[in-house]
Computed example of a mutant assay.
Amino acid sequence: MSTSPTAVVDHTAHTRYSDPGPHAALLEALPVDPPGLSAVARNVIVHYRSEGLDLPAVTSEDINLRWIERMLATDQERHGTPLTEPRAETARLQGCCRDHTLLCVATLRTHGVPARSRIGYAGYFHRNWFADHVVVEAWLEGRWRRFDPEIGAGFEALPVPMDMPTAELGSSGFVTAAQVWVGHRAGAVDADRYGVDPVNLLLRGERYVFDEVIYEIAHRFGDELLLWDGWGRIGIPGTPVTDEDAAWMDEIAALLLAADAGDLDAEARLLERYRTDAGLHPGTEIVQASPHGDPPVTVSIL
């Protein structure tokens, strides 16, 4: 991990996804300590697959609220109160880990704290299974600190969710998508143990990990897209990764791991690749799929 907040992009600056627009005051009123901020994120957003909750169908499209400005506008249309005021679980925005993280990242940036979302896999939700996940990485107390805003309290597999150590492959911690890709290509991990959940036979494996690395890079450089958006070399779930694509991804993942280690030259080269390679950059339109099974649609992200 880098020992400096210096990077080739300014992680205190809002992206078009994290910019709260006219709702900045809502974020200015929030705490920036991970436990306090995470509690607010859970108060505003409920996971759309939360067990034991009968979430209203009328709000199911909340999951496609791509911009924090629109998320905050929708929350205020329903509640019209500060984000710290309690919301009934079934009245919260329906979202996922990406949305909990984006709310935290947007708040931290509003307060001038460098922050970004990190995409990878968590080994702490299921035994011997690694679920795709998004967590916050913020420059706090002189170091990059990862925390999982979805988790309210520590447990055996994740004792300190508000300050997660850099994890090794195969551990119960959080590892980045690039780590998993490199480990898969080296034969160190079984990619079929990385995906949405243990019962989904399609959203897992080499193709899924390949696509997740593209998401990871997009989020790093300010395109904090939905986890079911598609563009560039992101493929249809379950389709094989070609030898050409795998070799291409080997170069990309190596640059990403070097950037994580503090190599600014590698990060600058990765940013240049991201901006110029149509396989990485989303351009002006993406294909939005749906975790609810709705037909894919083409969406402008201008």
Rank of each mutant, 00 (worst) to 15 (best):
L257I: 09
V213I: 07
L203W: 13
L203A: 12
G262F: 06
V241K: 09
P282R: 01
A266C: 08
T242I: 08
D250E: 14
P198I: 05
L225N: 09
R204T: 09
D265E: 15
W248A: 05
F221T: 07
L270Q: 05
T239P: 00
R204L: 04
I217W: 04
R220F: 03
T242C: 06
H281A: 12
T284F: 04
L227Q: 08
A266R: 06
T242P: 03
D211E: 04
A247I: 11
L226M: 14
L270T: 02
T239D: 15
L271D: 01
R207C: 12
A246M: 11
F221M: 09
P282F: 05
G222I: 08
A268F: 02
L264D: 12
L257D: 03
T284L: 14
E224C: 07
E206Q: 14
D211H: 03
N200F: 04
A246K: 12
D197V: 00
R193H: 14
G232N: 08
A247V: 15
A266V: 07
H219F: 13
L271W: 10
P237F: 12
T284P: 00
L270F: 09
D192Y: 11
G205M: 10
F221N: 02
G262S: 11
E224A: 06
D243V: 10
E267H: 08
A246L: 06
L264P: 05
R220A: 11
W248N: 07
D229P: 07
R273P: 06
W231D: 02
Y215H: 15
G195C: 09
R273N: 11
W231L: 04
E206V: 11
A278H: 13
D243T: 13
E251W: 01
G262I: 08
E285T: 15
H219L: 12
P282D: 02
I217T: 03
D260S: 11
L226K: 06
R207G: 11
A266E: 09
V213N: 02
D277C: 10
R204F: 01
E267Y: 08
W228I: 05
A254P: 01
A253C: 11
V241S: 05
Y194V: 04
A268K: 11
W228A: 00
M249T: 07
T276R: 11
F221Y: 12
L264V: 09
I217H: 01
A258G: 02
R193I: 00
G279I: 05
G262Q: 09
Y215P: 00
A254H: 12
D277F: 03
E206Y: 02
Y274T: 01
H281C: 12
R233C: 02
G230Y: 11
L201N: 11
A254D: 15
Y215A: 05
P237D: 14
V199I: 13
